[in-house]
Computed example of a mutant assay.
Amino acid sequence: MPLTPKGMATRRRIVEGAASQIRDQGVFTLRLEDVMVRTATSKSQLFHYFPGGKDELLLAVARYEASRVIDDQQPELSSLTSWAAWQKWRDKVVARYRAQGSDCPLHTALSQVGGATEATRAVAQELLDRWQEQLAAGIRLMQSSGEIGAGLDPDREAVALLAGVQGGVLILLTTGRSTALEAALDVGIAHLRATGRGRHREGAPAAVESG
């Protein structure tokens, strides 16, 4: 049976409270009792919305954090209509991951819901699909204005850029340094820019003449 607006609000309050609890104390020490106190929720309410208990709640937290990854990049991610807009998106991604450092709530939640299960893979795939679709949409918009070469496959280019970002994030989570993430974004965007008709404009890489 679909939830009522009040029920949806209660469920969301529980998920947000659990997410905050994980950020504050980590997933290993998460107790349902603490979530109930934090969200002013009774045990019967919590198990009404999450009959699978802690594992089901953690999966809901993972979906919530996955949505935040996309939401935190807006409105820049959905407005990649100029090179200035791409730079703003790049800067926002770097700033977000610099601020969170090695403490990634999404990574923590996904890694603790029974490992690489079908459910966690589905959450991760949904996130990556949404991210790729918006990057590909930006590439298509730039192709329509000639700023990116028409011969490029937007979906393939978006996957490559996203793979670079994820690799950079993984290195940041391991070392606490954002240099790899910055390099992945800069090289990926420079590659796209070098294919368009505006590649020799101010700020674009200049061609090297052979002697």
Rank of each mutant, 00 (worst) to 15 (best):
V61A: 09
Q87K: 15
K92Y: 01
L77D: 04
D72N: 15
R98D: 13
L58Q: 12
R98T: 15
D91T: 02
S102E: 12
L77A: 07
P105E: 09
P105Q: 05
A99D: 13
S67M: 08
A60C: 11
D71W: 04
W89H: 14
V69Y: 05
D91E: 13
A85R: 04
L58M: 14
T81S: 06
R96M: 01
K92D: 14
A66L: 06
R63N: 09
R68S: 06
Q73Y: 06
L58S: 06
S67P: 10
A62Y: 02
D103R: 15
W86A: 09
S79K: 12
D71N: 13
S67W: 09
W86H: 05
L59T: 11
A62H: 10
C104V: 09
C104W: 14
S102L: 10
Q100D: 03
W83T: 05
S82L: 10
L77P: 01
L58W: 02
V93K: 01
D72M: 02
D72C: 00
K92V: 00
G101I: 02
A99M: 04
A84W: 01
A84Y: 05
S102C: 08
G101M: 10
R90G: 07
K92M: 11
R63A: 08
V69W: 01
D72S: 12
R68K: 13
W83D: 03
A99K: 14
A62Q: 09
A85D: 13
V94I: 15
E76Y: 08
K92P: 08
R98Y: 00
L57Y: 09
S82W: 09
Q87N: 12
D91I: 04
L80P: 02
R63W: 08
Q100K: 14
W83M: 03
D71R: 11
R90C: 04
S67C: 06
S79N: 15
E76T: 04
I70R: 00
L58G: 11
D103C: 09
R96D: 00
L57T: 07
T81R: 13
L80Y: 13
G101E: 08
E65M: 06
S79A: 13
R90T: 08
A99C: 01
E76G: 00
V61Q: 02
K88F: 02
S78E: 10
S67N: 15
I70F: 03
A84Q: 15
L59A: 13
D71M: 11
R90A: 15
S78D: 10
Q73H: 12
W86P: 12
S82Y: 08
V93N: 04
R63I: 00
D71T: 14
S67F: 01
R96Q: 04
Y64K: 05
A84K: 14
Q100S: 08
L57H: 09
W86V: 10
R68E: 10
L59R: 09
V94F: 00
Y64H: 15
Q74F: 09
V69K: 00
A62R: 06
E76K: 01
E65W: 09
R68P: 01
A66N: 07
K88Y: 04
W86E: 07
Q100A: 03
P105A: 11
R68H: 11
W89L: 15
R98A: 12
L58P: 00
G101V: 03
S67K: 06
L77M: 11
V61E: 10
L59N: 04
A84C: 02
A95R: 12
L77C: 03
C104F: 14
T81N: 12
D72I: 02
K88I: 02
R68A: 14
C104Q: 07
